[in-house]
């Protein structure tokens, strides 16, 4: 690790100001991406600005039709939250199969979506639920936020403050865990809104990151049942292929995980 200066601001504005002052600053949340990258000397930020203990960035609230999770809320809190379990239990489930206990006690939803790892779980939930990402500057719809492999709509220095999820009628998540990293080899989040719209998002499958799956959405709109997907064929081209799974295997998983997510959604 190269020399760096660590800051622990107590407000978002303070954090943003520190970022602007630094020559090459980086925000730190759970640290699961930034710290290993710094240890491998692949990044050498001049300043590391810790967002994890900013009180205004931690908290969960369900009110009316919206579940709001503040950006630095650790996965474990999301998993245990009565508000989450009541309003969108699929998110509590997603968090329970994310990483492992050590990861869940430090990792944050804000860190996950800011990084947009193509195999991360939360991007699938945001895209399928049509969530809105709130930053210290603006609000960004999920489908505009995720822009490809490790790429988001965030400007330099912009801080995610919260994610707000419209509460669906039904939602479910199913994930095939990567045997080593326990990221998503493929994970599919399905949601049916109160007005009957169906949205399906898959992570871990595409080389450009989280993606909608129109063929599955169409089938589920007609018939919200796992059996409705029996004859759906997901094309393998454009999907990831690596030592843990071929593209056609992932294509199969998109379908199978979607079926299991629908069953889980009820």
């Amino acid at each position: 690790m190269y020399q760096t200066t660590y800051h622990r601001p107590s407000t978002v504005d303070e954090a943003a100001a520190l970022f602007a002052k630094g020559t090459e600053a980086k925000y730190l949340a759970g640290g699961h991406t930034l710290i290993p990258v710094m240890k491998q000397r692949l990044a050498s930020p001049s300043d590391v600005i810790d967002l994890a203990s900013i009180k205004e960035l931690v908290g969960i609230e369900a009110s009316g039709d919206t579940l709001t999770i503040k950006a630095a809320t650790p996965y474990f809190d999301i998993m245990q939250s009565a508000d989450v379990k009541k309003s969108i239990p699929a998110i509590a489930y997603l968090t329970s199969v994310l990483g492992d206990p050590a990861v869940r006690h430090r990792g944050t939803i804000g860190g996950s979506i800011a990084n947009n790892d193509p195999a991360a779980d939360f991007p699938a939930a945001l895209l399928a639920l049509g969530a809105t990402v709130k930053t210290n500057k603006r609000s960004i719809a999920a489908h505009d936020f995720f822009q490809g492999l490790f790429a988001t709509a965030l400007d330099d220095g912009e801080i995610i403050t919260a994610v707000s999820f419209p509460i669906p009628a039904k939602a479910g998540y199913a994930k095939m865990r990567h045997p080593a990293s326990r990221f998503a080899l493929t994970g599919v989040f399905v949601a049916k809104t109160k007005s009957g719209d169906v949205r399906v998002a898959a992570t871990g499958a595409s080389s450009t990151g989280v993606m909608r799956v129109p063929a599955i959405e169409a089938a589920l709109k007609t018939n919200w049942a796992a059996a409705a997907l029996d004859n759906v064929k997901i094309p393998a081209n454009g999907l990831l292929a690596d030592i843990h799974g071929s593209a056609d295997y992932r294509a199969n998983l998109v379908k199978v995980m979607a079926q299991r997510a629908v069953t889980a959604a009820g």
Binding site: M176, P179, S246, Y249
Partner: peptide, 14 residues
């Protein structure tokens, strides 16, 4: 015998 390999052994290699 990873899930990928077993699945292909069941369904054939595409």
């Amino acid at each position: 015998a990873t899930p990928d390999r077993v699945w292909h052994a069941i369904h054939g290699n595409a």
